[in-house]
């Protein structure tokens, strides 16, 4: 059991949720998504983003259109499909459950260790 593996598993789980969340706000191309993730302090390898977007697109959760760019090749702008919106809301529910639960559990652990320290 190595730590890197566990960490990457944890990140991987929320990655999809974060990306869909960014796209839900408005159409975005991979460059935007990477910049936003990085500025929020979430580590993301670009190389993992493209296959993920591709898979989501194949699953008809995302759709895209080509937009000409002034600074290079045309870009793919992604948006959520109807199916994607349903998918996202389900993820949102799960995340809220998870985040509340995790918060509750870990908070206890933190408090107890604080108490011991005292």
């Amino acid at each position: 059991m190595n730590i890197e593996n566990t960490q990457s598993q944890m990140r991987k789980g929320v990655l999809e949720y974060c990306i869909l969340s960014i796209i839900k706000r408005g159409e975005a191309y991979p460059g935007d998504i990477i910049d936003e993730m990085k500025s929020s302090g979430l580590q993301l390898l670009e190389g993992t983003l493209y296959p993920l977007l591709n898979r989501l697109k194949n699953a008809e959760i995302l759709a895209y259109k080509w937009v000409e760019s002034t600074s290079g090749p045309p870009r793919k702008y992604f948006r959520l499909t109807d199916k994607g919106r349903v998918f996202y809301s389900l993820l949102e529910m799960t995340w809220n459950e998870l985040s509340n639960g995790v918060e509750a559990v870990t908070q206890k652990t933190i408090q107890e260790s604080n108490n011991e320290a005292k």
Binding site: Y50, S71, G72, P73, R75, K76
Partner: peptide, 9 residues
Amino acid sequence: NDIENRIAE
């Protein structure tokens, strides 16, 4: 191809 596009950019 997407990645190549990105590299080009």
